[in-house]
Design a binder for these strands. Sequence first.
DNA 1: CATGAATGAGTCTTCATTCAT
DNA 2: AATGAATGAAGACTCATTCAT
Lengths: 233, 233, 233, 233
Amino acid sequence: MPTHPSDEERETRDSGKAGAVRTRRKAERPGEILEAAFEEFVQKGYAATRLEDVAARAGVTKGTIYVYFENKEQVFVAMVRELSRPVHVQAEEFAESSASSTAEFLRAYLCFLYRILATDPRGREIFRLLIAEANRFPELIDEHHQNFMGPVVRRLRQSLEDGAERGEIRRSSILEFPELLLSPALSLNISMLLFSDRRPIDMERHFEIAVDLLLNGLLQRPAGKADQPGQSS
Amino acid sequence: MPTHPSDEERETRDSGKAGAVRTRRKAERPGEILEAAFEEFVQKGYAATRLEDVAARAGVTKGTIYVYFENKEQVFVAMVRELSRPVHVQAEEFAESSASSTAEFLRAYLCFLYRILATDPRGREIFRLLIAEANRFPELIDEHHQNFMGPVVRRLRQSLEDGAERGEIRRSSILEFPELLLSPALSLNISMLLFSDRRPIDMERHFEIAVDLLLNGLLQRPAGKADQPGQSS
Amino acid sequence: MPTHPSDEERETRDSGKAGAVRTRRKAERPGEILEAAFEEFVQKGYAATRLEDVAARAGVTKGTIYVYFENKEQVFVAMVRELSRPVHVQAEEFAESSASSTAEFLRAYLCFLYRILATDPRGREIFRLLIAEANRFPELIDEHHQNFMGPVVRRLRQSLEDGAERGEIRRSSILEFPELLLSPALSLNISMLLFSDRRPIDMERHFEIAVDLLLNGLLQRPAGKADQPGQSS
Amino acid sequence: MPTHPSDEERETRDSGKAGAVRTRRKAERPGEILEAAFEEFVQKGYAATRLEDVAARAGVTKGTIYVYFENKEQVFVAMVRELSRPVHVQAEEFAESSASSTAEFLRAYLCFLYRILATDPRGREIFRLLIAEANRFPELIDEHHQNFMGPVVRRLRQSLEDGAERGEIRRSSILEFPELLLSPALSLNISMLLFSDRRPIDMERHFEIAVDLLLNGLLQRPAGKADQPGQSS
DNA sequence: CATGAATGAGTCTTCATTCAT
DNA sequence: AATGAATGAAGACTCATTCAT
């Protein structure tokens, strides 16, 4: 995430009045602007971000942003939508690929959600922005709920019910809050957002241990049988 | 949370030379300002908050803020510190009060943390501000880690180790990430920050179910024995 | 006055290489642009008018305006000239057609000037623009004086002198300010510009009464003889 | 009407941080700003006027304007109201002072209106602004009609009716458009706005001749009796 | 000729901060 | 200590103008 324009961009700008540059990327401009906007908004927050900095990072000038977007708010909204879409798509695609046993599916699903929420810097920072600006952009929260969190939770619940039916999973009341299965990933997300550079975390291992915790719990059992992440990896 | 100066305050200002009232309140001014700052910062975020609004909410004028605080940044920092302190104090106090069995202590501790992180709107919103402004105020993050998160995690680890030694808790590798025990509370916190008014949540029950999950895990066991929140309450 | 390109124009643009239509319209473009400019300038004033709106109203794009005109100022100047020309031409033509008695000619001439200045929305609004932008476009004022106001006043003076010579008109000192004969029309013009929609005015009648006033004055006379508009119509 | 700050103002600004200056004129600031705004708006029109120039002319900085006024529109509106008020007041006062004969009163009243509309540069330019910005500020037009034009026309009509009753004035149909008596003043106003520096006009004489025209009309009469301004002066 | 993407100077407006009272 | 008038740097947004296609 470079603060200054990359060499490539600088080069294009230096080339001055060369119109070829303008038209060459016409179609790519909006995406480039949103990309730049993401970096800036993440770094400074919505209100403290200067659209001129966004423009500079995208290798254009202030005015160009207004060619493609109504105003600062719309840049922000469009950026969140643009960067969220691939995630939503992936989530849907994942839903297609069925899985055999419940435990197996849950593991895969949680792994996927870890990647989205905590491992991927993009997803992580989008989350930060949603939390920070929830009051200013309620419609983004609504969309996020509708397109991501809602379906995910529904899927988790479904999966838990299936598991319970098959006898793989105990019929606990977790069905009331399936999002609890997300909490390790969310928690890691927050940790990364707050302490990332302070506390380097082995995310692989965090995941393994979280799965172990979720599946087996803390309490001593008569005979341990399920995943023992410490030994396996 | 009055937008306009209360009668009492207005009186103070109007009466001019009225010394007694003035001095009585003098000592409370900074606190009142920080209280007002909290509300405003939570609502608008750091950058979008106008110090004049803070002043108005506190029943004083712009200038008065500069009598007590260096500048806007210092108001924010002081506010976060001021509102975090009681939490830190409570956390220390809680540490004193020992508990018998590990499971019992964990339950109580988690309950306490739920209250701090998710149930109490104050703690919740302070968290939002920390996440939102982590890049701008790294020293606040450091402090938060040093005064709260660090000790809490240490205490959780200690408790887990004790439990393992006593045989109450299986010696899993959760010792590497004791903060996983916090994740349900954190997760609820985030949910509240994002969806509070959209998804009314029974936080009592959320806690019970989370504890059940943490203690027993998901998998079917030979013989269930621990808490079964759904049935018990 | 279409806001969107007419079907015909759209066709032209869409058809791309269609030469015939294009060339046919090519010659009309400048006029259409000035027509559109008139509407916009009248509505918003010079400074507040966006050339892009003018273009849109003319069914072309921004760039096209610069094919035909140097810049915004020149569009304005050209527009005023274009829309003033027919008036100037009419005024000259009217000058040709001589008239018998003075009173008769004056009546006809004033009627003509009423039509130009007050009845015709075009003339009315051009006047507004001249008044509003007199400081910015002194050359337009000069032209207006040279091409219209000057000749008109000269003609009025001539006519008054003729009338005095023939004994039809009393040899008053109005010869020093023949433009006083214009004042009812100008006054109506201003009224229309300011209060048009508020005060619907019967312009026919206004004219009749003004002529009566100009010819006979207010004072009681020994024996009324000239036009008595109230009775005649 | 100085383009640059007067020596006095310059001096005050040069004195730098001296706070005495700030407070000394606290109460006068709004008026000074509106005064400066008048000059600028007249010179450039509403849209082309920079609030910063207004501020400079008033001897303050941009920001100060926003201490007293909401925005540019409100500055304009307040300015027109402020500068119109004395005129409205004078008009009311004049209404009190009765006059003997109708002809006498009319003469005095028209003289007064000449002063307001044409002679006084203030009134003249306010009129220009009203005409120019009528579309943007319809409420100002309404106010002007309600506070000035309406009462004036009512008074004129009343006066004409009185005169007719007393037999001083012929019972012509001018009662339908009493504002015709205003037209010479309005006409002169427009002439001044358009051609002021081009055509120096003897306004005193213009008035005399207009009155003669209004009272006696153009037509030859059996025996002239009323004012003969040309000969008398 | 016509287009419309891109520019960037220009303006309104905001607001943290100062300071005389 | 408290005020609030004044400041001026800063930033969102506009739009006349250019120019490669």
